[in-house]
Computed example of a mutant assay.
Amino acid sequence: MFSRAFSKPTTANWVIQGANLIWFLGTFLLLSFYGVETEYALADAILFTLVFFGGVTVLDRIFSFYIPKGSNNWLLLALPLVISALGILIHYYLLGFFISDTDFLQIQKSMVILRSAILWVTFTLVTLIALVVAKLELQEESQKRENMMKDLSKEAELAQLRQQLQPHFLFNSLNSINALVMSKPDKAREMVIQLSDFLRGTIRKDSHEPVTLKEELGYLQLYLDIEKVRFGHRLDADFKVEEEAENLLVPQLLIQPLLENAIKHGLYGVTDEVRIRFEAKKQGGYLEITLENPYDKEHTAQSGAGFGLSSVARRLFLLYGRKDLLSTEKLSEVFRVNLKIPQSK
Rank of each mutant, 00 (worst) to 15 (best):
R61M: 11
I107G: 10
D103G: 10
F52L: 07
V56I: 11
I99Y: 10
I90P: 09
D60R: 15
G96A: 12
S71I: 02
L59K: 02
I88D: 04
L50A: 12
F53L: 15
H91A: 11
V82Y: 07
L59D: 00
I83T: 05
Q106V: 05
F98W: 14
G96T: 05
I90R: 10
D101M: 01
S71M: 05
I62S: 02
Y93C: 09
I62N: 01
D101N: 12
F98T: 11
S100Q: 13
T102M: 11
T102E: 15
L95Q: 07
F104K: 02
L79D: 02
F52C: 08
L75I: 04
S110E: 15
F104T: 04
T102D: 12
I99H: 09
G55E: 01
Q108W: 00
L89P: 00
L77W: 05
S100T: 15
Y93D: 07
F52T: 06
I88P: 00
H91M: 09
A78S: 09
L79Y: 03
Q108N: 08
Y93G: 10
I107V: 14
L86I: 14
S84Y: 02
N72V: 03
I88Q: 07
Q108Y: 10
K109W: 09
I107M: 09
S71A: 12
I107Y: 08
L50W: 07
I99R: 10
F63L: 06
T49P: 03
S64Y: 06
L95D: 05
G55Q: 00
F48T: 12
G96W: 05
G87H: 01
H91L: 11
L75T: 03
F97N: 08
S110W: 12
F63E: 03
F52D: 02
V56S: 08
S84L: 06
D103T: 13
R61W: 14
F65S: 14
K69R: 12
P80G: 06
H91R: 14
L75M: 08
M111H: 08
G87W: 02
D101V: 07
G96N: 10
L86Y: 09
F63N: 03
V82Q: 06
T57K: 14
L89C: 09
Y66P: 01
W74S: 01
P68W: 00
S100K: 15
F98C: 05
M111N: 12
T49Y: 04
A85V: 10
L95I: 06
I88K: 04
L59V: 01
F65V: 09
D103Y: 12
H91Y: 13
L59G: 04
I90C: 15
G55V: 04
L76K: 00
L75E: 04
P80L: 05
L77C: 05
I62Y: 01
F52A: 07
I83P: 01
A85L: 11
Q108M: 15
H91D: 13
G87R: 01
A85E: 03
N73H: 08
K69T: 05
S84R: 04
L59S: 02
I88G: 02
R61Y: 13
L50S: 08
D101A: 07
S100L: 13
G54T: 00
G87Q: 03
L81S: 09
F48Y: 15
L50E: 07
M111C: 08
N72A: 14
I62V: 08
Y92R: 05
S100A: 12
F65I: 07
P68K: 01
I83S: 00
Y92L: 05
F97E: 07
I88Y: 06
L95K: 04
L89K: 11
G54E: 00
D103H: 14
M111I: 05
Y93W: 14
Y92M: 03
L50Q: 09
